Computed example of a mutant assay.
Amino acid sequence: MWSGILPAVTAKFTPNDTLDIKEMERCFAYQISAGVDGIIVNGSLGEGPMLSHDERLDVLHVAKSVAGGRPVLMTIADAATRDCASLAERAAKAGATGLMIVPSLVYHTNPKETVATLSTIAAAADLPVMIYSNRIAYRVDVTLEIMDELAADKRFVAIKESSDDIRRTTEIINRFGDRYDVFTGVDNLAFEALAAGAVGWVAGLVVAFPEETVAIYRLMKAKRYDEALALYRWFRPLLDLDVSTYLVQNLKLVEALVTGTTEMVRAPRLPLEGARRAEVEKLVAEALANRPLLAKAA
């Protein structure tokens, strides 16, 4: 159902800590103009858990307004299944193309609870679902056995594979074939996952470098692996910033330095400062100084 580059876009805030609708329109449109294949709103990078449900729906509306018919997925991530189901239902009514569901944010569910949570949320919206499998950040591993149990429900169409174990991509494909659309959700494993058969990339650094992210994907699909690998190696120091406790601050700073947007985050997060900020600024300066010319790919 889905494939390609799906940016996990960032939320934009005014100095008064309200959503900056105009700036989100500009930044989301920049992604679309670069050729991405859809948009995912309110994920980890989008600070979704820091937004009210009304704010998350506002971000969804912005994305839909600029997406040009491309898929717009709403991330569902709350502590209580009841609240997740309520938001999922509202997202469906607001026109979301599908959902990306985080199994549990606070309480670390066991396999039975994980299946029940995902199934309840999917039923509330009756939309196609991408399961966000991230045992590193959220401590809930959506295992092959859980995927097997959910496979009978046709609403579950995709997996965002973020286990940090590149073997998992092959294991999913070996077990399920094309039953699930497998996306990589780890920026600095994207080349490896696409080479192993992933059909898409839920990307983070794409917010600052959409053309390069799209180019890597298209080169991989065209089997122009050497060209894709050269571009990926240039990109890799920045991609490593996605795998960090400070991924939101890291990527918002990169986005601000490259595209001129704001880096404001919602508390309790604070913008980067000191040595950590200087390191990100250095990486961006080096990347821009050595930014490659992009090859055309079908």
Score class of each variant (00 low, 15 high):
A122L: 01
A122I: 00
A123V: 02
A123G: 04
A123D: 12
A124V: 04
A124Y: 01
A125E: 01
A125Q: 06
A125K: 02
A125M: 08
A125L: 07
A125Y: 00
A125N: 02
D126W: 01
D126S: 13
D126N: 13
D126A: 11
L127P: 03
L127T: 02
L127N: 01
P128W: 07
P128I: 01
P128D: 04
V129N: 02
M130F: 06
M130V: 11
M130S: 08
Y132C: 10
Y132H: 15
S133T: 05
S133Y: 02
N134C: 12
N134G: 11
N134T: 03
N134Q: 10
N134P: 09
N134M: 09
R135E: 07
I136W: 15
I136F: 15
A137N: 12
A137V: 05
R139D: 10
R139S: 12
R139V: 05
R139L: 15
D141S: 08
D141M: 08
V142E: 03
V142Q: 03
T143K: 08
T143A: 11
T143P: 12
T143W: 09
L144N: 13
L144T: 11
L144Y: 14
E145W: 08
E145V: 01
E145R: 12
E145M: 07
E145N: 15
I146K: 02
I146R: 02
M147A: 11
D148C: 03
D148I: 07
L150N: 07
A151D: 09
A151I: 04
A151M: 14
A151C: 14
A152R: 11
A152C: 14
A152K: 12
D153E: 06
D153S: 00
D153G: 05
D153C: 02
K154L: 01
R155G: 02
R155S: 04
F156W: 05
F156M: 02
F156Y: 05
V157R: 05
V157A: 10
A158F: 00
A158S: 07
I159V: 14
I159A: 06
I159K: 01
I159F: 12
E161S: 08
E161Q: 09
E161H: 10
S162L: 13
S162D: 13
S163Q: 14
S163D: 14
S163Y: 09
D165Y: 13
D165N: 15
D165T: 10
D165W: 08
I166D: 10
I166C: 12
R167C: 05
R167T: 03
R167W: 03
R168I: 04
R168V: 14
R168K: 09
R168F: 10
R168E: 03
T169H: 10
T169S: 04
T169E: 06
T169V: 15
T169F: 14
I172Q: 09
I172D: 08
I172C: 11
I173Y: 09
I173V: 06
I173P: 04
R175K: 12
R175F: 03
R175V: 01
F176A: 04
D178I: 06
D178W: 04
